[in-house]
Amino acid sequence: MSFVWFVRHALVAQFSRLPPAEQFLRHAVDAGVGSVALLTLLIFFAGMSLAVQGYGAFVRMGGQEFLGLFCGIGGVRELFPVMAAIVCGARIGANLAASLANMQISEQIEALSVMGIDPMRYLVAPRLWAVVFTMPLLCAYADVVGLSASYFAAVVQLGVDQGTFSAQLREIIRWQDLAVGVGKGVAFGWLVAIIACYHGYRAAKQEGAAGVGVATNRAIVHSTVVCIVLNMILSAILYA
């Protein structure tokens, strides 16, 4: 089963009919609410790191007053959405891949087909919708948490002037930037979900437990790499 084949069928299943509300909701809550704590923790530290590291770099060149610019651009445009994608690739993607792979090796997916239920429509489509819907929200949330963390680190810990920092933030961050971050979230979400479902779906029955491990591992790695590369391409198109 090739990836192209899988994507084509998944797209057909995804857009032919909207998934049942409770299925969608269950997966959306699972992906979204389940990731919030992890995301908050990670983005908070990433935001603080950004400020501390930026400060360290600027101090050498004598330009620490540009820290606001640095955090605004580096954080909102790049780091926070990408971090959100990595975190979700690791958590949501791995969960999707592991659950589908487990269903595949315990013959549950075959059982569905035998019962005349299209697994693409029943299993894959609701998950795709759920993650596509959740990821942009998580990205927007990541922007808020990350910027607060950078602000906290810069102003409280490093003693950068509060007025300068926030003035620079306001100056450099436009609504378009936030929109781009959220838009990246949609793309990342769909990719994380489709890659994870593909690897989970492809697990071979004979492999048993090993198949679940392989699917999980591949889902995490492929979705991370794809999101980072896609981020670069999107940034190059939008900002260069």
Partner: peptide, 15 residues
């Protein structure tokens, strides 16, 4: 917990 446990182990390691 069998195959599902393997997925959980890989996942929790990364997280």
């Amino acid at each position: 917990g069998g195959a599902a446990g393997v997925g959980r182990a890989a996942n929790s390691t990364v997280v």
